[in-house]
Write a protein that binds this DNA or RNA. Structure first.
Lengths: 112, 112
DNA sequence: TTTGTTGTTCGCAAAAATACGAACAATTTT
DNA sequence: AAAATTGTTCGTATTTTTGCGAACAACAAA
């Protein structure tokens, strides 16, 4: 953990930040969009979509799994991945609430 | 830049990832929520909200500014910050489209 | 002019993220 | 049993992120 454990961030901020961090790389965005458009697919198919080595793809998949956005299941000799729709919805709600601020139509008052 | 310059990510994926990365830390989420709820405020007020040193706050603000989500203006002896609503809306649209996948009501088919 | 207030920048350290090739494990095919 | 296929894990290197204190700059106040 990098940011000090000194309490002081709210649970919701931490959750939102965790999801955001998981989305914070083009490869992971691409993976999620791909999986969301399909239904399920195996590692190899995902790898084919990306311009990076398979070891790296594996790492990105692990991060998305840690964040709860995807799941994997072994189906020898393949490994299938798919969106975890339950958490997907939670994330969507968090982001929805976040962006949905009251004052969206205010112009930026300062800062020319 | 960490991810290889080897083309292959779409503009939209890169933009979305950039915004997501900016949101990928609780401190930055807290800053944005605070600014969004106000209108404008100065560095010191933001610093008071956070459990980290001012040098670190300054860094986070710089990152949010780089991402285009906030703006700053000098008003000696203060520096005011506020949301850049124009880019805020762009980001909201990007995220909205991203989460809004057709198949949200499908159960996860695989991966038990 | 000296002092105080307000933020940024610098220098540094530690940790995390990104990426790759090679080695490995598991299963299937031959 | 040997060989091929499919992914993960290991070891390593590089870059980026996070964080802090101290020094600095700009302006205001005394």
């Amino acid at each position: 953990m990098a940011y000090t454990q000194s309490t002081d961030y709210r649970e919701e901020e931490i959750n939102l930040a965790r999801f955001a961090k998981a989305l914070g790389h083009p490869a992971r965005i691409a993976i999620l969009k791909y999986l969301a458009s399909l239904d399920t697919c195996c590692f190899g198919d995902i790898h084919k979509e990306l311009p990076i080595a398979k070891a790296t793809v594996s790492q990105h998949l692990a991060e998305l799994k840690d964040a709860g956005l995807i799941r994997g299941s072994i189906a020898p000799p393949r490994v299938n991945y798919c969106i975890d729709w339950e958490n997907w919805k939670k994330a969507r709600k968090l982001f929805g609430d976040f962006w949905e601020t009251e004052n969206n139509d205010r112009p930026s008052p300062c800062c020319q």
